[in-house]
């Protein structure tokens, strides 16, 4: 056996990822401690970070980020669980329905934004026509420019685009539960709710917690849908860190300031990655236990 085969295989990947990911990360961290004025770059220590912690826009954006990621975790997981439970039985056209329900995943971000922007248009959008059926609602709701509503509209759109993944994964974990468990519980006289509580729920909790971490990470990564729909507005209502960094860099050209915010974002990403590893181990352990039982 060649013992140094792993080196030969590692080198191309490490070079590639090093050039396009690791090196930019290092360079970004360096930028965060520098300032460029009229083409002259100088070290400024923690000045950018000091500016950052006194910047209300930064804190507003941190708050928006956490509100948004939390909302997405809740919405994606409940939608995913609901759809998975609904489609987890042997019915005619099952695979067809699953195919249909996964279509939003295949529609790219830009057309998704276009469609939702048109549907949410205050003057001729279809959603306002539907909303006008509700008594007391007047038909010119400014979905994407009114405070709070813009946040809700973004959540709707991101939820639509992303939920298929969660329902597919939860469905596959529901199907890993051995049928004998349900049979046995039924023989023992357990009702639907009792069966859900003592069999279904404990079997899928590890998967759900792993998905919660992933939902946090994926909503944290979200850029295109938010940026093209609202640009982060109104105010900082929908301006997550990703949006704020982009605006600071490409609207105000504060590259160094944007980089110091990116350092905070990177730290959050590291925490997310570690959480993912921890929760994933739990899922693997659970699968192993289930395998032993089945």
């Amino acid at each position: 056996m060649q013992t140094n085969l792993h080196r030969k295989l590692l080198v191309p990947i490490l070079l590639f990822e090093g050039a396009f990911v690791i090196y930019p990360i290092v360079r970004g961290i360096i930028l965060a401690f520098q300032q460029t004025n009229f083409g002259k770059t100088s070290w400024v220590g923690l000045a950018n970070f000091r500016q950052m912690i006194h910047d209300p826009i930064f804190w507003a954006s941190i708050r928006t980020t956490f509100e948004f990621t939390f909302a997405m975790v809740v919405v994606w997981l409940s939608l995913g669980l609901g759809v998975a439970l609904l489609t987890n039985w042997a019915f005619k056209g099952r695979s067809f329905v699953r195919g249909i329900l996964a279509i939003p995943w295949a529609i790219p971000d830009v057309p998704t934004v276009l469609t939702f922007t048109i549907m949410l248009d205050p003057n001729f959008g279809i959603l306002n026509r539907i909303a006008s059926w509700i008594p007391g609602v007047h038909h010119q709701i400014q979905w994407l420019t009114a405070p709070n509503l813009a946040f809700i509209a973004i959540i709707m759109m991101v939820a639509w685009k992303g939920f298929p993944f969660y329902s597919l994964v939860i469905l596959s974990s529901l199907q890993a539960i051995p049928d004998e468990l349900y049979e046995a519980a039924r023989v023992d006289g357990a009702g639907t709710i009792q069966r859900f509580r003592s069999i279904t729920w404990p079997s899928i909790v590890p998967t759900l917690s792993l998905l919660a971490v992933l939902a946090f990470i994926f909503s944290f990564q979200q850029f295109t849908l938010i940026y093209l729909a609202t640009g982060g507005g109104p105010g900082q209502d929908t301006s997550t860190i990703a949006i704020l960094i982009y605006n600071q860099a490409f609207q105000y050209f504060n590259y160094n300031y944007a980089s110091s915010m990116a350092v905070v974002g990177l730290l959050l990403a590291v925490i997310g990655t570690i959480l993912f590893v921890v929760f994933e181990r739990r899922v693997i352990r659970q699968r192993y236990l289930q395998g032993g039982l089945g």
Binding site: G28, A249, A262, A269, T273
Partner: peptide
């Protein structure tokens, strides 16, 4: 390293 690259938001390294 692979996992982190996959989970890191692109906006964090867009400037550098």
């Amino acid at each position: 390293l692979l996992l982190f690259t996959q989970l890191m938001p692109g906006a964090m390294i867009i400037v550098p």
